[in-house]
Amino acid sequence: MTEDPYAPPFEEEAPPAPVERAPRKSAAIVPAQNIAGRALVVVIAIMTFLSCITFGAVTLVRDTALMWENQISREATIQIKPVADLDMDSALTTAANIATEFDGVKGVRIVDRAATTRLLEPWLGSGFDIEQLPVPRLIIVTIDENAPPDFAAMRDTIKTAIPSATLDDHRTWVDRLVAMAHTTVTIGVAILVLMLSATVMTVVFATRGAMDGNGHIIEVLHFAGAEASFIARQFRNRFLFTGMKGAAMGGVAAIVIFIVFSWWSSRSMATPQGDQAAALFGNFAIGSAGYLGVLMMVAVIGSLTAATSHATVVAYLGDLEGGHGEA
């Protein structure tokens, strides 16, 4: 049979093109989103917030105590009580001259009648005659902090010249402030340790729950040859992200609280309430060191979350190997 010269050339059928399939996305050992993960973020945020508030409060009290201590240690007070046959003006001048003679005294200031009246007005009201009241008069002695005077000798000299006069170097108040500051720092550190311990326990339970929910996958990977470090790294990375997310939320909330209190303190500075608060706690500003401490607290809690989950997974896999070895 002759071929038709006008027939089209024979073409072989091309093989079907391979169907391109999208690469299967491997499922994570630790689910990215689950109820336990979201709850853990909230718990870590709350713990971080409370830890940062505690740290800021300790910093605020410590700074305020140091401010009080510095102010008190720079001054001493001579008090002269009015008694019969005492010329108060002469006694004030005599006591001031005696204090000036001691080395370490930088200045002496007699609190005059007008200033004494203003000090008593919150309790006695206005319009009273201070001369008709047995009110002690005060002398403020400014001292050199680096080279304070001999208070014992000054006290004896003033007492000899003016029997009704007393010298207060505020040492009792300074000792109480130092003790209060140390106690506050100790209590704050103890509270921080308790909160960090609670965070660790929460992460342990959350890690155990995540491992129980994915136990079959972990066992298959482990006995198929996956190293414990690989499995632990998956949990560590997931919990590091969870811990940093919750810690950042709590740290930001704490910083906002400190900024709001500082703003309120600055706005209320001219009011009686604001003046009293400023006298007790300063301007509610924790300073750059306090904010740096908050950031460090966020980093510590995030890192602690990751380290705790890693240790929990390693311990779990160790128990798993031990259990199968005994079986």
Rank of each mutant, 00 (worst) to 15 (best):
R137L: 04
L138Y: 13
L138K: 01
I139P: 03
I139T: 02
I140G: 00
V141D: 00
T142Q: 06
T142H: 11
D144W: 08
E145L: 02
N146D: 14
N146H: 04
A147C: 00
A147I: 10
A147S: 11
A147L: 11
A147F: 08
P148H: 11
P148L: 07
P148N: 01
P148A: 06
P149G: 04
P149I: 02
P149R: 05
P149V: 05
P149K: 08
P149S: 06
D150L: 07
D150V: 03
D150A: 09
D150T: 07
F151Y: 15
F151N: 12
A152Y: 12
A152I: 10
A152N: 13
A152G: 05
A152S: 12
A153V: 13
M154W: 11
R155N: 11
R155K: 15
R155G: 07
D156K: 15
D156Q: 14
D156C: 09
D156L: 13
D156R: 15
D156E: 15
T157D: 15
I158L: 13
K159M: 09
K159E: 14
T160L: 13
A161W: 14
A161I: 13
I162F: 08
I162N: 06
P163K: 14
P163Q: 04
P163R: 12
P163T: 12
P163D: 09
A165K: 09
T166Q: 10
T166S: 13
D168W: 08
D168Y: 07
D168V: 09
D168G: 02
D169T: 05
R171T: 09
R171L: 06
R171C: 00
T172Q: 06
W173S: 02
W173A: 09
W173L: 10
V174E: 04
V174N: 07
D175F: 03
R176A: 07
R176H: 10
L177S: 00
L177V: 11
L177D: 00
L177A: 07
L177H: 06
V178K: 11
A179T: 11
A179Y: 04
A179E: 09
A179W: 08
A179S: 12
M180V: 04
A181M: 09
H182C: 01
H182E: 13
H182F: 03
T184W: 11
T184S: 14
T184Y: 10
T184E: 08
V185T: 13
V185G: 03
V185H: 02
T186Y: 05
T186G: 11
T186P: 00
I187A: 13
I187Y: 04
I187L: 12
I187S: 04
I187E: 03
G188P: 05
G188A: 10
G188F: 09
V189M: 10
V189H: 10
A190N: 01
I191R: 00
I191M: 08
I191A: 06
I191T: 07
L192P: 00
